[in-house]
Amino acid sequence: MSVEDFAELRSQASDYNLKLVLAARGSGAYLADVDVTVRSLPSREVVLEHRTDGPLLLAALPAGRYEVTASFADVLPGARDTLTRVIQVPRSGLVRSVMYFDTGDEVSAESPSAYRLN
């Protein structure tokens, strides 16, 4: 994902009510190729399945409770490769959630500042 693509995605965040950030624990290095499933609660009906191209997943969902499951293959030995969170999407506004995986990835000093977790 280019810096321009990333900036464009970030600028669109106000059009959505769920912003999921996928990053490495410790360094905050952004991750891509994460499989994300969103299920409505209590029915557990799948409302979204997506493999991310970059570190952000934006979604527009009806207000309510959801279970978000994210799976990432490149974790450290013994680390969990699947994380689950329950989130409450409000009637208005944005809910933001960060899911950290134990990968050992570091943020390169050469990485553009646009790629920093904030």
Rank of each mutant, 00 (worst) to 15 (best):
F72A: 05
V68F: 03
S71D: 02
E110H: 08
Q12N: 14
I87E: 00
S108C: 07
L22C: 07
A13C: 02
R80Y: 08
Q88W: 08
Y100D: 05
L57G: 03
R51M: 14
V47N: 05
L58D: 01
S11M: 11
L83F: 06
L31Q: 06
V95Q: 02
M99S: 05
A70E: 06
G104K: 08
P90F: 10
V34Q: 06
T69A: 14
N17A: 04
A70S: 11
L48T: 00
T37K: 15
S11P: 06
R51P: 01
Q12R: 11
S14M: 09
V89D: 07
P55N: 09
D105F: 10
A79K: 07
S92G: 14
D105V: 04
V36P: 12
S108W: 00
Y16V: 08
A60I: 00
A24C: 12
E45Y: 00
A24N: 08
P90R: 01
G28D: 01
E8K: 11
V107G: 11
T82Y: 07
D53I: 08
E4V: 15
R65Q: 15
S97Q: 13
D15L: 14
E106W: 03
G28E: 07
N118T: 13
R44Y: 06
N17G: 11
R116K: 04
G104D: 04
R39V: 04
Y16S: 06
V107Y: 01
L9I: 14
V89Q: 06
Q12E: 12
T37L: 12
S43H: 02
S111F: 11
R39Q: 13
L83R: 15
Y115C: 01
F101A: 05
D53G: 13
R96P: 02
D35N: 15
G64C: 08
V107R: 14
E110V: 01
R96E: 15
V95M: 13
P112T: 04
A7V: 13
V47T: 02
F101W: 13
L58N: 05
Q12L: 12
D35M: 13
S40L: 00
E4I: 15
E8R: 10
E4D: 11
V98E: 10
Y66A: 00
R51Y: 03
D81Q: 08
S11W: 01
T37Q: 11
F72Q: 05
L94M: 14
L18V: 14
L9E: 14
S97N: 12
T82P: 01
M1F: 07
V38G: 02
T52N: 10
R10E: 12
R80P: 14
L94D: 02
D35F: 11
V36S: 12
S14Y: 11
V86L: 09
S40Y: 03
V38M: 11
V36H: 05
T103Q: 02
T69L: 09
